[in-house]
């Protein structure tokens, strides 16, 4: 694994998200009410909606375009919808956000 510092935890609003640009496209970095953080591809598998702009509730996010709901933990679509969003390893260390770039890189190599 190779961890890259992408910013401070406090740069993300609670129950909100920010995006980072990668060669794989945008990745949404979420912060939940209980201060857990998650990184998922910022593209809804349904019609490409920006998940980073969705309403965050529990450990879930609702796509702003057509209200598909995804688990932030697994990236899986909830309820009757079927779909999967790629997830990335993300951790917080001394208030900094570190993302595992190897998966991003691995994918770009593939």
């Amino acid at each position: 694994m190779s961890w890259i510092d992408i910013g401070a935890l406090d740069d993300i609003p609670v129950q909100g998200a920010r995006v980072i640009k990668t060669k794989m496209g945008c990745v949404a970095v979420f912060r939940t009410a209980d201060d857990a953080v998650f990184a998922l591809s910022d593209r809804c598998p349904h019609k490409g909606g920006p998940l980073s702009e969705g309403i965050v509730h529990g450990h879930k996010v609702t796509c702003p375009l057509h209200n598909w709901v995804f688990s932030l933990e697994t990236g899986e679509a909830q309820g009757a919808d079927e779909g999967q969003v790629p997830t990335y390893d993300l951790r917080v260390e001394s208030g900094r956000l570190l993302i595992d770039a190897s998966k991003l890189a691995a994918q770009s190599a593939a």
Binding site: S2, I4, I6, G7, D11, I12, R18, V19, I20, K21, T22, K23, C26, V29, L97, A101, S102, L104, A105, S108, A109
Partner: peptide
């Protein structure tokens, strides 16, 4: 600032 990307990794050198 808040509405721009948090980071831009496209400029990082590929590993």
């Amino acid at each position: 600032r808040a509405w721009s990307p948090l980071a831009d990794l496209t400029k990082e050198a590929a590993e």
